[in-house]
Amino acid sequence: RIYPLMRVTLTTSDGASVTVSRQLTKHSGFIEKAITDMAVDDNAVPLSAVAVDVDDATLKLVIEWLTEHRDDALPYPEKTDEERRADDIPAWDQAFVQKWDTKEDQQQTLYAVITAADKLDIKGLLDMTCKTLANKINGKTVEEMREILQLECDFTEEELAEIRKENAWCEN
């Protein structure tokens, strides 16, 4: 049973702490588990102590999203075998992630939130941010993808040629 007025204090990796309503934290599988399993004192959950490296700025964004989504149905629907899609992000969420999309940021915020959503087990937020990243690389060239994902190539020239040959079968 969740008591709506119950408050939970979260401590981030950089020492900041924030107190939020359990109405928000119930969407995080990790925090719920921490509260129930670990019998934390005064409902204070030190995120860093349990290998969840979430910084203050990222946690603020997570809480902003949770606040908007506090009434989302739980449990979050399981993944089905249906085709995955990425074109169904709600308008509020789209505007929310749009704000991070600056030249200086270079997806750093997006990755930080994806990582936090994964670690904190917030399925709705993870889904939405993964869709956002999928949309970013959708239809892009390899160079553009490399730029967005900031990935270094660890293939040899020969290996790369082989993969291209395998995949270029239907090109003119």
Binding site: A86, Y111, T115, D118, N138, Q150, C153, F155, I163
Partner: peptide, 29 residues
């Protein structure tokens, strides 16, 4: 950034793009 994400998470992203994009992604690393 990606090296910090677990496989499941990256797969979740890749499952949402099409095969032509996966061809490109396969040459990244």
């Amino acid at each position: 950034h990606l090296s910090k994400l677990p496989d499941d998470c990256i797969r979740d992203i890749l499952e949402r793009i099409d095969h032509a994009d996966l061809d490109e992604a396969a040459t990244l690393s």
